[in-house]
Structure formats: structure tokens, C-alpha cells
Design a protein around this nucleic acid. Structure first.
Lengths: 338, 338
DNA sequence: GCGCGTATTGTTAGCGATCACAAGAACGGC
DNA sequence: GCCGTTCTTGTGATCGCTAACAATACGCGC
């Protein structure tokens, strides 16, 4: 009696206590139909009494699948990826899956492939890859066919399961808002054009101008960083004809706002600005930033659902989900001065 | 010949190809000493030829330990936690470990315990818990003794392995900088006082004032959010005697800057401000924010090292590591007006 | 009463690694 | 030439679970 077992209880211990075979315990655990209600209860009681928890490694060994979902993301320090990651983790936890992260520093083929490989090592049940540039998509080319895969932000032209945000629609929203306020045209500080997101926003901006019959000014090519917004701002501040600017993200807008401020230009009185992302700080920029919000929560949920469908084998081939962004009105847009 | 095996190769396949027993393959894989060099090479070649990768589930089953590290964090959307997570993931990957995240929404006992439990289910090799408030520490009380555990930001009074940033030192740095610029005293907008970080910053601020013989003004209690900085700013802006403010983090400082700006106060000409965190955007606030930087990279590395020591059994009892923050000078500090 | 289908439970055989132990080879000392 | 070490390799059991199959019980129709 005094000799307490050091190791945690296994299925056979539960079986012994409940007076059944270990297989019956397994059936109860996996909700198999053909178990008598009374037996099921007895097993449940034994499980509770022993504080038994199934050994996932053993299960993974025999089924060949773990309850782990791998996620490959880049630069998870930034607001966007970090939010996506958090949303994913939460959604997965609700579905009984754990999430293993593999962040990469660069989005080249090699880095991505390495991260994917590490996850495959762990025998993940499925894989989510955030592939915002073509090179990341490319790295997925040689993937084994049999592991469920969902791509986020990837190339819609590929036939994988994919979740994206309709960047062009968001850009159109922003551009139309500025045109609607009476601006003759809208300037755009872009993100790195090899990113799908940036390309989509450029396209949406262009198409909205075109549809409105407005002049299409040259695009100012930038990066995602505040510093590139700052640089663009210094340049645009010298051009009096610039009265409305749409930036590819909020960080850029922050830098832009500072550059305009330094040059003595007031936002929105002199220049109107719209960003993209709706980071938590955007409401406290000077002035509060009107911006486009993309719901990472929706993206994560849609992505997980697609993945779970594949895992359970009920997947429709190459399904794609597109999430619509929305415009968040704050105080950085006004009519142009007469 | 044409019948290609569907399943991935196992150790016995490698053994057969190399003409040795599976046990010898295992020895090569685990770098056991007593294997003849020639044999080792033959096995390595066979491994490469088959593209063999060991099955972690099988290994975990027999050893009782996975190559997974669990990490419990709150609100991983914020810059601080997100950075810590990313740094940890990277450090762990270098050491051959995968990282499983469990974010929690609230820091109460129950949430933390739940996240810990889910990780224990996965049979993690070790656990990192970010425990910035007492309730999180409390949740760790009932933890099984045998799983390696490192706490980040926890209570130094407890005897666990712990990594913290010396918040008080950082606050002293900021306060002394402002006093050094000639301000009679420094006001402080605090974080939620039940957070260890916030408490440390309050204490450092107080002690620096005390040491300098400066008057200690009432503390303005805030949250971590920009809105609380904004609220504090609106109040402080009405008080002409306020010339120097130290905020508990950069997000607060952002809100504060906007409130001051709205009231027509210039920073740093009228009021000097120092923040805490050095978020990437801080350099692009208006004006660029002088702030205190804590190196998440160092924290993560120290934490992982402590954890790996425990996992390998070479741990010194209850070791604690303290990381020193540094001051980052920008443009939000100046001498007070005469 | 016999046969058959269905619900419930048990038995056995792996999954793919590690561990403990044993066996054979090589080598030096007497 | 025999014996005891040390180095190297192999054998068999085992981890805790699920899958496949077997066995038993029960009910029903003829």
C-alpha cells in the first residue's frame, strides 16, 4: 500500500480499477459508440480517480499523427504576425490541438523549408504557413502530399487551401474614402512590391483611382517600416499638390505623420492620411489614424477550419477563403483646402 | 522494385541497408562512444540515402520525454510578450527543441493552470511560464516537481529558476536622466501595480528621487494601454509644475504625447518624457522617444539555458538571472524652461 | 431449438524507438 | 596457449497506445 507508483498511471491501470480491458478504456476515451453506458461511467470514474491522462506520444506512435499543429511565420514580433499567431493558438486550443511555432527570419526558400522540416520532424498533424511572398510559396512546392497544409496570405493562383484578406478591396475602401472627401487624387506609399499584400493594395489603389477617373500619381515605393514612411513623408511634404496619402500600413503612416509634422503640415487640415492594419496604437497617433482593419481572428479561424477539414479527410480540394477588410474612421481625413 | 514503401523509413530499414542491427543505428544517432568509425560512417550513409528521420513519438514514448518546450504567455499580441516568444523560439530551435505556445487571456490561477495542464498533456520536456503578476506565480504552486520549470518576470522571493529584468534599475536610469537635465522632480505614470514590472519601475523611480533629495510627487496610476497614458496626459497637462514625466511603457507615452500635443504643450521644450520598452515605433513618435530598453533576446537565452540545465539534470537549485536594461537616448528630453 | 445479425467486450499484434543485458572480437599479460 | 579486460555489436523486452480480429452475449425469426 505504501509503495506508491512513481510513474503516472497508464491505460492498464485504469482498466484494472474499472474491471475492464484496456481496449474498453481506449474506446471510452475515443468516444466509440458501442460501449454500454454503465461501463462507460465506470471507466470515467476510474480515470478521474487515478487522475489518468493519456500518453500522447504513444497515441502518436500508433496513429502516426500527433495532436500538434505547426505554424510557420516570419517576424512574429510585428503586430500582424503576432496577432495571427495568437488567434491561431486560441482557435487550435479550442479544437484540442497544441500549436508549435517555427518563426523564420528570412522568407527565402531555405529558411521556410527548414522550418517546415523541423515541424515534419515533430510529426505534426497539419501545417499552417504564412507565405506573404512568392519565395515562401515556392518553398512549399516540394512538400510531401500527405500532410495537411493551409497557406495564409499566399498566392491565390496556386491550388492549395488558402486564406487571404482581400487587400485590393481594403485599398479601394481607403482610396474611395479620400476621393469621396473631395481630393483630386490619392498618393500611395507602398509596401515591398514582392509581397502579395503590398501588391494587392497597390492594385486596389490604382483601380479605385481609375474607376473614379482620377489621375494616377507615381507610386512611392516603401518598406513596412516607420522609417520608410518617414522618408516618403519628407519627400511628399515638399509637394503642395499632395493632399491625400494612403500608406500600405500603420507603421509607415506613423513615420509619415512625423515627417509631415516636422515640415509644419497639419493632418488632416493640410494633408489627409489613411493607413492599413489598425494596430492598437493607431487610435493614439497624432492625429488618430483612419485605417483599414483586417480581422486576424477571422483569418485564423478560417485557416484552422480548412486545416481540420483536411486532417479529418473531409476536405474539398484547394478551397480558398477570402476575408473582407473594413474601414475604421478616425480623425486623419478631411476635405482638401479650397 | 516497383513497390515503393508508402510509410517513411524506420530504424530497422536503415539497419538493414547498413548491414547492422537497429541498436547500432540508435547508437550512432545518439552519439554513443563505442561505435567503430567505419560502422558509424556506413550507418550515416544509409540514413542519408533513405532520408530517414527518427520518429520523435517513439522516442518520447520510451524515454518519457519529448523534445518540446512549452511556453505559457499572456497577450502575445503585445510587443513585449511577442518579442519574448520569438526570441525563445529561436533559441530553442538552435538547441534542437520545438516550442509549443499556450497563450492565456487572463492571468488568473485557473487560466494559467489550464495552459500548463495542456502542455503537461503533451509531455513537454520543460516549461517556461511568463508570470508577471502574483496570481500567475500562485498557479505554479501545485506543479508536479519533476517537470523542469523556468519562470520569467516572476516573484524573486520564490525559489524557482527565474529570469527577470531589473525594472527598478531601468526606472532609476530614466529618473536620473531627467533629474540630470535639471528638472526639480519627475512625475510617474505607472503600470498596473499588481504587476511585478510596474511595481519595480515605481520603486526605482521613488528611490532615485529619494536618493537625489527630490520631492516625490503623487504617482499617477495607469494601465499599460495608450489610452491610460492619454488620460494621464490630459490631467498632467493642466499642471504647469509638471516638466518631466516617466511613463511605465512606450504605449502610455504615445497616448501621453498626444494629450500634451492637444493641449498645446511641446515635447521636450515644455515637458520632457521618457518611456519604457523601446518598441520599434518609439523612434518615430513625435518627438522620437527617449526610453528604456530591455533585451528580450537576453532574457530568452538566459531562460532557455536555465531550462536546459534542469532538463539535463545539471541544474543549480533555484538559480536566478537578472538582466540589466539600458537607456536609449532620443529627442524627448530637454532642460526645463527657466 | 437452430441460425444469424448486432451489440459489447477481450485478445493479440504491432507502431519505432531505447534500455538492459549478453555475446563475440580483439588484445595484453602471464 | 589460456584468461580476463575492454571495445563493439546484437538480442529481446518494453514504453502506452490503437487497429484488427475474435469471442461472447443477446435477441429475434423461423
Amino acid at each position: 500500500m505504501d509503495v506508491r507508483s512513481v510513474r503516472s498511471p497508464a491505460m492498464t491501470d485504469v482498466a484494472k480499477l474499472a474491471g475492464v480491458s484496456h481496449q474498453t478504456v481506449s474506446r471510452v476515451l475515443n468516444d466509440h459508440p458501442n460501449v454500454r453506458e454503465q461501463t462507460r461511467l465506470r471507466v470515467r470514474a476510474a480515470i478521474a480517480e487515478l487522475g489518468y491522462r493519456p500518453n500522447r506520444a504513444a497515441r502518436a506512435l500508433v496513429t502516426g499523427r500527433s495532436q500538434l499543429i505547426g505554424i510557420v511565420a516570419q517576424n512574429t514580433t510585428l503586430y500582424g504576425p503576432a496577432s495571427l499567431l495568437a488567434a491561431f493558438e486560441q482557435a487550435a486550443a479550442e479544437a484540442g490541438f497544441a500549436v508549435s511555432v517555427g518563426s523564420v527570419n528570412r522568407l527565402d526558400r531555405e529558411s521556410i523549408a527548414g522550418a517546415v522540416d523541423r515541424h515534419l520532424d515533430q510529426r505534426v498533424a497539419g501545417l499552417v504557413v504564412i507565405a506573404p511572398v512568392a519565395s515562401a510559396d515556392d518553398a512549399l512546392e516540394g512538400m510531401p502530399e500527405d500532410v495537411p497544409l493551409v497557406t495564409i496570405d499566399g498566392d491565390p493562383a496556386r491550388s492549395q487551401a488558402l486564406v487571404t484578406v482581400d487587400q485590393a478591396a481594403g485599398a479601394r475602401l481607403a482610396t474611395q474614402r479620400l476621393l469621396g472627401a473631395g481630393h483630386r487624387t490619392v498618393w500611395h506609399v507602398s509596401g515591398p512590391p514582392d509581397w502579395y499584400d503590398a501588391a494587392g493594395r497597390i492594385e486596389g489603389w490604382r483601380s479605385a483611382l481609375q474607376a473614379a477617373g482620377a489621375e494616377i500619381p507615381p507610386m512611392v515605393a516603401g518598406q513596412w517600416s516607420p522609417s520608410s514612411g518617414y522618408d516618403a513623408g519628407r519627400m511628399l511634404a515638399r509637394m503642395p499638390e499632395v493632399t491625400a496619402i494612403f500608406t500600405a500600413n500603420d507603421a509607415q503612416a506613423l513615420g509619415l505623420l512625423r515627417a509631415l509634422n516636422e515640415r509644419g503640415l497639419r493632418v488632416p487640415a493640410d494633408v489627409s492620411v489613411i493607413g492599413f492594419d489598425d494596430v492598437p496604437e493607431a487610435a493614439y497617433y497624432i492625429p488618430p489614424l483612419t485605417t483599414v482593419r483586417q480581422s486576424f481572428h477571422e483569418v485564423a479561424h478560417a485557416g484552422l477550419e480548412l486545416l481540420l477539414q483536411q486532417i479529418s479527410g473531409s476536405a474539398t480540394e484547394g478551397e480558398q477563403v477570402v476575408i473582407a477588410p473594413t474601414l475604421v474612421e478616425r480623425a486623419s481625413v478631411a476635405e482638401p483646402r479650397a
